[in-house]
Amino acid sequence: MFEARLASTLTLKRIVDALREILNQSTLDCSDTGIQMQAMDNSHVSLVSLCLRKEYFEKYKCNRNISLGLDLKSLTKVLKCANGDDAVTIKAADKADKVELSFESAGKERTADYELRLLNLDQEHLAIPETEYNCVVHMPATEFARICRDMATFSESVVIACSKEGIKFSASGEMGAANIKLSETTKGEVSIQVDEPVALSFAGRYLSTFTRATPLAEKVKIGLAPDVPLLVEYPIEDYGYIRYYLAPKVDD
């Protein structure tokens, strides 16, 4: 039996919003420690990994490991039926072929239950090793979203170059070129740790997709290392994260 309750549906809506542009379907692996999900986009160049520890939930019960294969479009439709401030309870019996979502209004005067059919999905899991990134940058999530949006105006390709002087985003195309550089700030909004400078090129449309997670976190962490996929991590309070990985462009 699996049961998890969140005080607010809004965070669940935001999590699904952060996933659904990359994934159509995915499997939530639920265990007694919390919920994990890992899936690649169709083109296999980006990956999203979700972790929600059980402490994130108002109530959490999982007697036996259970995998819930979900169609994210359908889940989004169900979540649209709920208000952001409704409490939500997700329930599934062992070996169930459906999951139940119950919403309760803030004043408890309205409850609504929905059933969603579960899918049997073949998930391709990757082994992501603990990586020592040469450059680790923390910046406001809204700033990162703005940079990705502005870069997209100029080119499909974005070069991210990080050194002790700062992190620089560059794009150049037919229209012209854009360069945005952020230096470390004394107030700590932007922090930059660099062991070795790194410069890599990425597909801007994936970066823009990752910024769908912006409403979830004030800050975003970016990890760069030579010849390793980019890490873009949005913490979910103190109890989890959404991590995106993006393979660098091939040097041609």
């Binding site: 296999h44 160049v45 082994a127 992501i128 090793p129 597909a203 660098p248 462009k249 091939v250």
Partner: peptide, 14 residues
């Protein structure tokens, strides 16, 4: 795909 490497080139299961 856009001259992108595939992630499995980096993170394939052993």
């Amino acid at each position: 795909e856009d001259l992108q490497q595939e992630l499995s080139n980096y993170y394939a299961m052993p």
